[in-house]
Design a protein around this nucleic acid. Sequence first.
DNA 1: ATTTGACCAGATTTGTAATTTTGGTCAAAT
DNA 2: ATTTGACCAAAATTACAAATCTGGTCAAAT
Lengths: 234, 234
Amino acid sequence: MGTDNPEREKRILDAASDLFAHYGYDKTTVSDIARAAGVSKGAIYLHFESKDALFEGLLIREMEQYGQKWVERVMADPDGGSIATMYKQTLYAWTESPFMAAMFKQDRRVFGNYLRKPDNFFRRLEGGRGQSTRHEFIALMQAAGAVRTDISAQVIAHVMNILAYGLVAMDDVIDAEQIPETEALIEGMGLLMEQALAPPGGGNQEAAKQIIEQLVAGVQQQFTALREEESESK
Amino acid sequence: MGTDNPEREKRILDAASDLFAHYGYDKTTVSDIARAAGVSKGAIYLHFESKDALFEGLLIREMEQYGQKWVERVMADPDGGSIATMYKQTLYAWTESPFMAAMFKQDRRVFGNYLRKPDNFFRRLEGGRGQSTRHEFIALMQAAGAVRTDISAQVIAHVMNILAYGLVAMDDVIDAEQIPETEALIEGMGLLMEQALAPPGGGNQEAAKQIIEQLVAGVQQQFTALREEESESK
DNA sequence: ATTTGACCAGATTTGTAATTTTGGTCAAAT
DNA sequence: ATTTGACCAAAATTACAAATCTGGTCAAAT
């Protein structure tokens, strides 16, 4: 916004991140954030137009960090070509980002009344390009012969969504001690999906690798667009 | 209880089932149930000691019906020997029983304040034999060579739980139109799990079939025990 | 030019008393 | 012997004013 002081803005966002994650949107006041960030309340309004704009700025930062982490992970993975390992990296990046997990859960404890706002971040998101990305990706994989075609891309994508959701949300419904540890779970899901998705003859690894690289590039681009979109918003 | 009039008890439970499913535990009054069942309020207390006892009686009846439906389905399935088809039948039975789905979700809209009670049905259940049944079953399957052994039974069982949960709970988190229709989803999950769980060489079908038959018998027995347990409770 | 924090109107929460509803009972009706 | 529904104490809901808090501003300080 009006002020150019990225270091202070970062301090504000860091403080906000802690407080929102711990106390949730409703119970975290702007004064709390100012105190925790060691700045005056007025200073916050030099960086953000409103509490909501600050909150959304934080969401965007977290999404960017998640996206970045994901890209790094997938590119660093020696076996990065298979859907299964890519999926695994998605799940790892996911669980490492409490905010992303909360976002997916639409966690009422964290997001509180923010979710009731008529033009909140999520509603604006799903208005534009939908969540459809994942099933389009699966369809590409199928066309390339890297994924079995006897199950529709929509169904496969949805099953993958359910697993990701269950990974972060299952602890609301059964007690924690019944749940295997996260790493074992992710590795297991990776192995299961690898075998589950393989086409009859065994997948076309090269084609898969190419599509994944394309996807990675696409995601990076998408985040750039998102950032621009925000800098012009209310 | 004190009165022997199974026909009237059924009417009460049927009415209660409709009302609880529609309005939830909190908003459904005993008088509502009496009116809908066409009996006086007093009559209800001839069958059930309290509103809670009635509610729990309903839960037990629904669980029994679910169990019965499941047993029928699995036994009727021509390909009943494989884990995948058994799992599919589980999911079908599940989705056909709105109450079971609500139970698994611990749906606050349906169960309301009942869940806050210190000694509610669910707490009593998990005190005794745990939810562990499913992973013990997987372990048996592994020992018999019908399921791959490079993933722990706990992890496999939990993944199956997540899918079952996602099947009924996902509509709280993304809007319905994004979700594939239930049948396609269940069939897809069955196919995916079939391939995902197969051991390297291909499964030992005969051993699997035997274990499943054993499980079916065990479940029937368990429900008998449950019913006795309830008839002596408060 | 920046930054601050006292200040304010509007929203939220709290305290509380009046009102209504509900689970459960039992004398009377059948 | 059964069944009923008017009745009751306890619990939940509503009503509403007083008190508090919060997002946002801006004159004053730096």
